Simulated scan of single mutants.
Amino acid sequence: MLELSILGFLYDTPLHGYELRKRITALTGHVRPVAESTLYPAIKRLEKAGLLARETQPGSTAAPRHVLTLTEAGRTELRHRLAEPARGDITDENRWFTLLAFLRHLPDPPAQAAVLRRRLAFLDEPASFFYAGDRPLRAEELDDPFRQGILTIARATSEAELRWLRATLGSLDRSV
């Protein structure tokens, strides 16, 4: 998801590494803080692949800064990753939120809707954190108030997301 975040933030505007790291941390930092030792190798891989370019500009008060810009190949790669996300990008909530943060860069509403439909299908699958044999347990079936809390919070989150997905899909379908 780090590479998707880099491509997504650079899609809008050129950024230097420090500013890019701040934006990625704001998006995912509570879950996965971004260390320089992780960010800069990813930037180098993307640069080597021709997806972004680096330009040295004078710093406002200190040393020169390396400003990163997305190449046309980088824009194409971002749109490809958005249109055809891996299953984990749909099922993992943190990866899903990163994908969702940049889905607006996919210019085709039917393609956006196709991604949302994949998430909707995933959320419609029966699931739980706790099971009795093969049967998913509901919060009301548990004696443990903490596990009840997990299921209650997860249910409320899923219901809110399902409402949003259905409303957004309706809006996207009307825009075609």
Rank of each mutant, 00 (worst) to 15 (best):
I150M: 10
T71K: 07
A53L: 13
R166V: 10
P110N: 01
E141F: 04
L7D: 04
G74R: 08
L120F: 05
P107L: 07
S60Q: 01
R81S: 06
G50F: 09
E55K: 15
V176K: 13
W164G: 13
L4R: 15
F146K: 06
E19W: 01
R118A: 11
L165P: 11
R117S: 04
T69W: 01
T71S: 12
E19V: 11
A160P: 07
A49C: 08
K44I: 05
E55H: 14
E159G: 03
A53K: 14
F102T: 01
P109D: 03
S171V: 01
L137C: 04
K22N: 14
L46D: 07
T61Y: 04
G8E: 05
P85H: 05
F9V: 07
R135I: 00
E77P: 05
R174A: 15
L70V: 12
L106S: 08
R79S: 11
A139C: 09
G149R: 12
L116I: 04
V31P: 00
D173Y: 01
R81F: 11
S128N: 00
A73C: 03
R32H: 14
M1G: 09
P33G: 05
F9M: 09
E36C: 00
A62P: 02
R95V: 05
T25N: 15
L116R: 12
K44L: 14
R32K: 14
L15V: 03
L68S: 06
F130D: 03
P85K: 08
H30G: 12
R79D: 06
I150P: 03
R174Q: 15
Q112S: 07
L46S: 10
R87F: 02
T98V: 15
A132V: 00
P64E: 04
Y18G: 08
G59H: 10
G59V: 09
R119D: 05
R54Y: 00
R155N: 09
D144R: 04
T71H: 07
H16F: 12
S37V: 14
T71E: 07
P107Y: 00
L4T: 11
V115P: 11
